[in-house]
């Protein structure tokens, strides 16, 4: 009976869709890395190695194999949860990812929280006062936020709040498992820098969705029934824009994960982003592939949760 539950079936169908997405994404990344000039075997062998030594290393790491064979090996192992070892450190990639993942996740989570907790109230404020000075101000801030490069904002934040005022640390991160309060304290500035664009996006989307709802005919009916503007906004308005909000959260999470790469580099945070950047520079294939693999799974998992939530907030979304 449980297997027939529509929500479970939906999850099952989604899981079946994951496999081709993972294969495609990792294949493309693998191919792109191959196109980057430079010989990883030569790098691994060191500056003064003989040609012979380089050739040995190439064989040892399987780099002499045809492209497709190399990719197939990686995929086969990944399917068995073996993400192989880093060329550079020789550590298992999975261990590295698991070690750094919480740091990135904390950063993205804080940024998401900031985007929503600032963006949602501002969006509501603007939508309920269309054309007023408040609306104009909020809309301008949002347009500015969308266009603002996050690394630039990051530098301004560091200059102001850590170098001048000394309120927050300028670089680095503390692992959640070591000290949660310190971890959040370290995450504040990078999360704010990361969140600005997302917050602006939340404001814009929520504002336009709520304006449309408040101008709808069913809202006119609610007024005609004698409901208070408060009840109309907070009960009916918000439930009707919840779908938009969910969509925005889904897109935002992917966007924040991508943006974390830049922000981690700026703040020297030892997360997945900085790890993948360093690995890509030295063509450490297993690490790059491993991180892409983990990111794809994460994004798909988030979207799956959001799809389930859709069915809870919008009765029109059929559980097919």
């Amino acid at each position: 009976m449980l297997a027939n539950h529509p929500r479970l079936r939906m999850v099952g169908r989604r899981l079946a869709q994951i496999v081709p997405v993972i294969v495609l994404a990792t294949f493309i990344v693998f191919g792109l890395l191959k196109l980057v000039p430079g010989d990883v075997a030569a790098t691994l062998a060191g500056e003064y190695a003989t040609d012979e030594r380089v050739a040995q290393i190439r064989v040892a790491y399987g780099l002499d194999q045809p492209f497709l064979v190399q990719y197939w090996h990686w995929l086969w192992n990944a399917a068995h949860l073996d993400l192989s070892r880093s060329f550079m450190s020789n550590e298992p990639v999975l261990d590295q990812i698991l070690h750094r993942f919480p740091t990135t996740l904390l950063l993205v989570f804080c940024a998401l929280l900031i985007s929503l907790s600032v963006g949602v109230p501002l969006g509501i404020l603007a939508a309920t006062r269309v054309g007023s000075r408040v609306d104009v101000a909020v809309t301008s801030i949002a347009s500015f936020g969308v266009a603002l490069p996050s690394f630039w904002l990051a530098m301004i934040l560091v200059a102001t709040f850590s170098l001048s005022l000394g309120w927050f640390p300028a670089t680095g991160a503390v692992r959640w498992s070591v000290d949660p309060r310190l971890a959040v304290w370290y995450a504040v500035l990078p999360a704010v820098a990361l969140a600005a664009g997302g917050m602006a996006e939340v404001v814009r989307q929520l504002r336009s969705a709520l304006i449309e709802v408040l101008a709808s005919q069913y809202v006119r009916t609610l007024y005609a029934k004698g409901l208070s503007p408060t009840a109309i906004l907070w009960k009916h308005g918000l439930k009707n824009v919840a779908v938009t909000l969910l969509t925005v959260i889904g897109l935002l999470t992917s966007r924040l994960l991508g943006g974390a790469v830049v922000i981690e580099a700026v703040f020297a945070i030892p997360g997945m982003g900085s790890m993948v950047v360093r690995a890509a520079i030295v063509k450490d294939f297993p690490v790059v592939q491993g991180v892409v693999f983990a990111m794809v799974i994460l994004v798909i998992a988030i979207n799956m949760v959001i799809d389930v939530l859709y069915t809870l907030v919008d009765p029109r979304v059929a559980l097919k």
Partner: peptide, 24 residues
């Protein structure tokens, strides 16, 4: 006016689909 609306005077509209809140 809120005590008049829906209590003393009600109004119904042309499009019953768009006049009802879809998520309640």
């Amino acid at each position: 006016m809120r005590h008049v609306r829906g209590r003393k005077i009600s109004m119904i509209f042309q499009e019953p689909m768009s006049a009802l809140d879809p998520v309640f």
